[in-house]
Each structure stands twice: as structure tokens, then as C-alpha cells.
Write a protein that binds this DNA or RNA. Structure first.
Lengths: 234, 234
DNA sequence: GAGTGGTCTAGACCACGTT
DNA sequence: ACGTGGTCTAGACCACTCG
């Protein structure tokens, strides 16, 4: 077990359980060094992680202040599976599989500079609190994963990729726009044609930089909300 | 000058100038240690920064691969001033000041757990490539900055805060939704009432955790596009 | 086996805030 | 003056990729 991750998780869990509340100071570097009997750089790695993810604010000469981190909902700047999203936000949700097709072409112009690929196409609808809210079109690179079982698509593709196939998902490039509803949006989301659609098109890559999938996620914009933590650089 | 930042900037500039192209390997840690005559941890700080911001992918046993980073446009996960946005995207843009008012109340329910504050209200319109595209409502905390000159609002509030006032901007919490156009949207953006508005409401904080401002940024959604780099955690 | 990145140590000096 | 976080050093061992 990586030591800095253990310290990070311990502190994070204390923040999330409100043991440390907004405005509180975390234990100082020195205290954590003694408590965990590790070197200071190791402690600082854990602190840096909490800082990067917006859980704390570090102030020199003072300490590490806990910030308000009660912000979830649909994230742009991290990869989260729909299943995780539902769990984190305590939603009630159901999935339909609308289609599963093999050997579909994904043309290069949909991807961010990557060559075209053969994929398995999976179309799913997410029903949140009884309301049809999202249609996901997933194109899974057949060179990475083929013949995906229906049950994996019903449960969570990411869970299947990570736990069953042992794939390491690394990053995605997401393109966000707002568009008009198309025929299938009207049909499957049961909306009026004036309801806008927030569209997230993303290309997901593995740790070895292979393309795992291209996904188009179409959200009823009137049901959409996102909270992001943004830092100022340099 | 911080050594790791110098190394970071040198490498970043080589990436952006295409000296290192997509798929190329950066010099190894060992080479950078020799080149800059610094310790390895210092090199690794620079590499970690490039990794965190999505410029490279590190692969153990192999090296640091340069990724495609031709993605700009409106960012959610970083704080960027409108002026910087325009420069990075090579847009042609003009600003109108629609209103400047002193001593406006910002009620606590607009903020993320912070108490209400007195602010200077600045309303501006951004005209991008001749098209009125964004209306920004800024509420600047009067305890931090008061009597902001008109010229600062015309040029860049962030530039004024950072360079003229010496303030250190740290982070923001942004709330993103899609809404219908209101009366002022129709009037100042000159749009049809069916054009949706992408709304970003954000609370910006300084390094000492004081609130700098609350901002509501209303974008013509049909002109909006954003590209985000997202990582998978744990 | 040689080279790569990932983690860790035990020190050190500095800038800053509080007392 | 003292405690805090920020940076840096000169080592070390490990897991991994590649020829």
C-alpha cells in the first residue's frame, strides 16, 4: 500500500465524515509525520492531493484549511461512471439498453486526432427519478474489449472494464456543447422540441494510451446541473 | 525563481511550439537532472505538473509521451479571464460596459456557504466576432476591492486584481446550468427566445480564502463550446 | 540487463503568519 | 521566536518496458 495514499484517504474520510469541518485546520505536516512515522515529503504528497482536488486550502504560516466540498453532480473535469454518479448523488435510477451492435465504424473525424476504429455500439437510456434524462451512445474499441455481455452494459461498463477486464482507465477529452433535440431525443426522452440537449462527446484512453471508447452523452438540459472546482494557474 | 516551474515552463513551451510533437517522448528524468543540475524530485515536480494538466502521459519503464493538447475554448476546470480566453483562442472581441453600481447586496443564498456581502456590480457584454455572445454580471466584494476604475472593467478585471492590486486569485466554485433567455438576454444578445443560455455562476476566492467576487456569466448556448481534459481517479 | 518512471527517506533552508 | 507550509537535495529501492 502506498503510504501517501493511505494518509490521503484517512484525511479525506475525516473530511467527508465532517470530523474536520469547513474552516477547520488539518493536523500540521509535523504532526502527520509523527503520527504516521513517515518522511515529510510523503505527508506533503497526501496534502497536495487533497489540495489539487479542492478539499483544502493551504496557507503558509497558518495551516491547511478544510473547504466546503459538498459539491457533486455531473463532473466535467473528472471521469466518473454513471453508476458512481448515481451513488454519490443518492439518485434513484434505472437503465434501458436500446441497442447493441457489433463492428460499427467510428470515423476519425469524431476523434481527437486518432485514427478510425471498429467498435461495438451500445445505446442506453438513463431514467433518473422516473424521468428519462440521458441517452448514452458508447462506441467501445473492439481491439480492447469485444463481445461485451448485456449484463455489463446494464450494470456499469466502467466496472466491467476495470474489474473484470483489468483495464486501467486514465483520461478522457470531453467536448461540451448545447444542441437541439434530434428525433431520438424526442422519442426516448419524451420531451418537447424546444428542450435543449447538453451534449458531451468524449474520447476515453487507457494508461497505455490506447483508445478505449468514444461516447456521446445527451442530457436533457433542463435537468442538467454541474458543480466544478476550478483553480487559478500561475 | 522556482526551479521546478522553470523546467515546467521550458518543457511546456517546447510542447506548444511543437518541438515535441504528439507521441514524442520527453527527455527522461535522468537527462533532465543532468541538464538542469537539480535533484530528481525537482524534475519530477515539473513532470507531475505537465501530467496533471493533461499535456503528457507518463508510462513506467517507457517515458513521458506528449499528448495532443490543441484544446482550448471556454474552460470549466480552470480560472481563466475573458481576456486570456480571447487571446488563447485568437478571437476578435469587443466589450461593452452596461452598468456599474456601488454597494449592492449579494445575498448568502447565492454563495456556497459564505455570508452575504456588499459588492460593486459590473455588467458587461462580450461581442465575439461581431456577435453579442456573453453577458457577465460581476459582483466584486467591496472589502477586497472598491471603486474599480471603468478602464479596468473595459480591459480585464483579473488583470487589474492581480497586477494593479496584487491580489492572489486561487480558486472558484462554478455552478453550470442551461436556462431560458431572460428579458436582458433577449435585449442585449439580440436572440430569439428559443435560444438557450448556458449559465455559469461562480464564487471566486483569494489565497487567504477571502471572497473576491460572485459572477454570473450568461452565454448564448448555440455559440458555446468547451473542451475539457478529465482524469480518472483511483 | 539497462533504462524508465513511482515512491520514499532524512535531512535542509526559506517565506510567511501568529504570538 | 516559533510553528506553519513551500521548495530542494542526494541518495535509495521498486515495478515496469524493451531490446
Amino acid at each position: 500500500m502506498k503510504k501517501y495514499l493511505q494518509i490521503y484517504r484517512d484525511l479525506l474520510s475525516d473530511i467527508q465524515s465532517k470530523k474536520y469541518q469547513e474552516g477547520d485546520l488539518l493536523p500540521s505536516d509535523t504532526k502527520l509525520v509523527m503520527q504516521y512515522t513517515v518522511s515529510r515529503e510523503t505527508v506533503r504528497r497526501a496534502i497536495k492531493l487533497l489540495f489539487d482536488e479542492g478539499y483544502i486550502q493551504t496557507i503558509r504560516g497558518k495551516g491547511s484549511i478544510v473547504l466546503n466540498s459538498d459539491r457533486v453532480t455531473f463532473p466535467f473535469s473528472r471521469i466518473e461512471s454513471y453508476k458512481e454518479l448515481v451513488a454519490n448523488n443518492h439518485l434513484y435510477s434505472e437503465n434501458d439498453i436500446l441497442q447493441m451492435t457489433d463492428h460499427v465504424d467510428v470515423p476519425a473525424n469524431l476523434l481527437f486526432g486518432a485514427p478510425a476504429l471498429k467498435a461495438q455500439r451500445i445505446v442506453r437510456r438513463r431514467v433518473v427519478n422516473q424521468v428519462p434524462t440521458i441517452i448514452d451512445y458508447d462506441y467501445i474499441n473492439e481491439e480492447v474489449a469485444a463481445n461485451i455481455p448485456k449484463q455489463a452494459a446494464l450494470n456499469s461498463l466502467f466496472y466491467y472494464f476495470e474489474h473484470d477486464l483489468g483495464l486501467k482507465i486514465n483520461y478522457a477529452i470531453k467536448h461540451i456543447t448545447v444542441e437541439s433535440a434530434d428525433y431520438d431525443d424526442l422519442k426516448y426522452l419524451d420531451i418537447d422540441k424546444h428542450v435543449p440537449i447538453l451534449v458531451v462527446r468524449s474520447e476515453t484512453r487507457l494508461s497505455d494510451n490506447r483508445i478505449l471508447s468514444y461516447t456521446e452523452s445527451r442530457h436533457r438540459a433542463d435537468k442538467f446541473s454541474s458543480v466544478e472546482f476550478a483553480r487559478r494557474h500561475e
